[in-house]
Every structure is written in C-alpha cells, then in structure tokens.
Design a protein around this nucleic acid. Sequence first.
DNA 1: CTAAATGTTTAGACAAATCTAAAAAAATAA
DNA 2: TTATTTTTTTAGATTTGTCTAAACATTTAG
Lengths: 217, 217
Amino acid sequence: MQSFTEENYLKIIYHLSENNEGAVQTNAIAEKMQTKAASVTDMLRKLSEKELISYKKYQGAHLTPLGRQTAINVIRKHRLWEVFLVEKLNFKWDEVHDIAEELEHINSPELVERLDEYLAFPKNDPHGDPIPDKNGNFDFVPFIKLSKLKKDDKGLIMGVSEHSSAFLKHLEKLGLTLGKSLTISAINDFDGSVEIIVENKKTSVTREIARHILIRI
Amino acid sequence: MQSFTEENYLKIIYHLSENNEGAVQTNAIAEKMQTKAASVTDMLRKLSEKELISYKKYQGAHLTPLGRQTAINVIRKHRLWEVFLVEKLNFKWDEVHDIAEELEHINSPELVERLDEYLAFPKNDPHGDPIPDKNGNFDFVPFIKLSKLKKDDKGLIMGVSEHSSAFLKHLEKLGLTLGKSLTISAINDFDGSVEIIVENKKTSVTREIARHILIRI
DNA sequence: CTAAATGTTTAGACAAATCTAAAAAAATAA
DNA sequence: TTATTTTTTTAGATTTGTCTAAACATTTAG
C-alpha cells in the first residue's frame, strides 16, 4: 500500500498527463505539490522503484498501468466522497474539495463500493467531473471550454476545471451552475471576456474564467 | 493540529485511564500501540511538550484538559462513523472498527457536525458505546459486566467492551446482540462460564466473554 | 533490607519525506 | 555554436516516528 504522499504524487502526475500527453516534468509536479523540485526528484525515484511510474533522469515521469490504476482509484474515491458531502450532508460545491482530499486516502475497497451503491452509482461529481467505475473506466462525455464558443453559440454547463472555493463561489453568484443552459451574446475583442445570457439574465466573465467552464453544445 | 499517531496515543491514554484512575504506564501504552516502550517514552515527552499530557519520568502519563478534549473528539468521530457505516452503508457491527480507525482522523469540524445531524444525533455506536456530544459530554448510562450477574438475574445487553471481529461474530452467532434481554440460568462454579437464556434459547459463554458483555439490569 | 525482577529511559541508528545550496544537464537565444 | 537561462539532480541536513541494546529506576520477594 502507498502512503498518502505517494498517492498524491500519482494523482497529480495523472492529472498533468491528462492534458499534455508527453512526460510529466519535475517542476510541474513540484508546483502542484507545493514543494521543491529536489523533493520531487527523490519521490520520482521512489515511485519508479515501486514500478508505479517509469522515470529516467531529466526525462520526466510516465505512469505505469499500475500507477495509473492507483491514481484513478484515488480520483474515484475523491469524487464519490464529494457526491456524498453534497448530496447527503448538504455541503455546497465550493466546500467539499478539501474534505475530499482527506477522505480520498481512506483505504477500504468495500467502503468505496458500498458508498458508490449508497449514492446510486453517480456518473459525475458536484463539479461535473466523471467518476470512474470500479474497473477504472470513465464514462467520457465530450465538452469544450466556454472560451472556445463564438457569438450566439448555445450550450449547457457540464463542469468546471478549477475547484477553488473562490472560483466556485463566483460562478454561483453569477448563476453559472451545473446544468444551466446559456447563450453567448457577445465576445469582447479587447480582453476576450465573454458576455453570457443565463436564465434571461445577462452576465459577463473574463477569458480566464471562461477557460475553466466546460460546455456541451 | 496533531498527527494521526499523536491522536492514537491520546486516544489510548484516554481509554487506559478510564478504567484504572491513576497514571497510565509506558508499557501499557506500548502494548496497545503495538510498539516498544522506548518509542512510547519519546512520544510521551513530545505530547508533554505540547501540553497534551502531563508526564514525569517513571511516573506515567495523565491527559491534560486539552489532551482529554482532543482524545474525546477522536472518539466522537470514531463512533459517529461507525454509526454511519452500519446504519447507512449496511456494514455489520463486526466490520466497522478498522474503517472507523481511519475515518476518525479526518479533520473537519463541520463534517463531524453535519454527520452527527445526518445520523439524527445518535447517543450510542453499534457496540453500545456512548457518543460524546460536540462539547465532549457523555450521556452516561450505568451498566455492569455480564460476569458479575448471579443466577436468575435478568438484564438487557447494552454494549460490549471488546471490538474484535472474531468476538462480535461469535456473539452474533449466539444471538447475543444489542438490545436483547437475557436471563442467567446457571453459573458454572468450575470455570466461571455462564449459562444464558436469550429469546427462549439456552446458550453459554465463557467467563472471559461474559466480562466483555455489558448489561443494564 | 538487600537481591532479583520488572518497568522505563537513554543513546545511537534508521527510513520517509522534506529542505537548501550547489552542481550538472538540457533548452533557448544571440 | 557558444553563452545564457531554465530545469533537474546530487549532496548533505532535518523532522517524525520508530527500533535495539544497554543503562537506570522502581517494585517485589525472600
């Protein structure tokens, strides 16, 4: 079994390799782990010895199938616990991330399966992220970033790619929550900010925020 | 905030001082923590520096009010999670201890309060142990050990003082579960074993087992 | 009340995860 | 392509919780 720290490294390597396909760099991991590159190097060597990643000096890291499986299991637990916190304990979507960061390391396969069943096998967490099934398979639904839409495009808010409380509270205030349908009324050439109509109300988000809102057309 | 290890030490010191009132001895802690006396000495010094216990060399340990508070909070979480596992996820009473040992260290006061509310503020865990409220107060219900009863005494099973799966499964098989009422039909002078009638069926337990069954007359 | 047994602490060491400072490799730019 | 910058690794140290072996303190028994 892995330590919490090892699991966190694997999770971060997984997320970093989701976007850009190549090897995951030491510095990128260091930034996400809020630690120093030197510490990352030590850990990469250790994870490599345990055959959870493949790693060659100066070449960055790749998850092995075993490492990938481990990472996905942690992500599965994280997202299931988030659903539990929101659906059963009435937390808001901006309050659950940190608690789930702790709960994701609880090590009991039986608990995870029963929790999944208790929650009626949810497909997505409160931020729209897909929850892998017990075999690690995602039910992938394609989406595009709000920042890619053009004027007059319509879409449905499917998820967010940023989980900070500040960001989520902001969206909530603007009425931009999961499942809402929206129309792009204008795009500001100057700064890329996006004008949106949601439930007949006009609102506006910066380009940076638009990049973190995921849409199904 | 304390580490998991520190919390476990505090919890064990609390339990050991529940029974015998005096100072808690190094060796006793070592046995419960499955570690060596030398390690315990190191930890006692550390807990003492943090003012969670009072400790003088060769004199054993006492919890300070702060240490006691911390221990009770861990116990509160442990027992609430056990209720959750049994009531909501349909685990059996002999399956929940180890999982709760992990969950008890999740650090979110808000989570504990919401869980408590979700479970309708239970007063006892699945083994009959009282759950302290958020201020650390126990709703104490007096009980006596089954091993103290005499022939023809009647009582209600209120709890157990041993949480191992093997022990609980054994009780289950004999029909000796929480809330059952029983009558002592005989006590064997030779080995102290106790003959019991539960739901019109006669059964028998050893003295050692009887010591761990808690009864309200 | 001394001697033996029991209980506890000290000394020194180790593994995990981290750090700083400095060296080395790779990437980028002139 | 050489020089500069960026990235990564190494070396050596620190903290936490643990260990063994040996010393020391306390309790118990004769």
